[in-house]
Amino acid sequence: MGATEWGVLLLGIAAIAGLNWYFFVAPARGGVTVADDEGSGKVVIAVKGGYDPSLIRVKAGRPLQLVFDRQENNSCSEEIVIPDFGIRTFLPAFKQTTIELTPKAPGRYPFTCGMSMLHGTIVAE
């Protein structure tokens, strides 16, 4: 193996490491939003190639209103699935869809798109 081959090999390994870091390790940019304690417990989540915010901190036992604001017509995000609450709902494009739920016990409640590729989490504390 010559220098070029070694170079390509190292670059390849670096690229694989980099992309896996980017998708699996790097924290989602969406960040954290705390549901308003005084208000209705309403959180607006922008749906556009992902969920923004993708991490929602709430108080356990408090009713929560998730407003999914779907800003695209990419069919990948057309459904929202919240398995722990048995919810699978269609989100019309460019519209807001409200889902009400109450995380009774503290814990992490993931939500995904219909094919489990876009991810978000409700953290009840």
């Binding site: 924290p27 969406g30 992902g50 695209e72 990948c76 876009l118 991810h119």
Partner: peptide, 14 residues
Amino acid sequence: RAWTAFRHHAADMN
């Protein structure tokens, strides 16, 4: 769509 997903550290079919 690939770009918006990428910005969210997500990747799909696109």
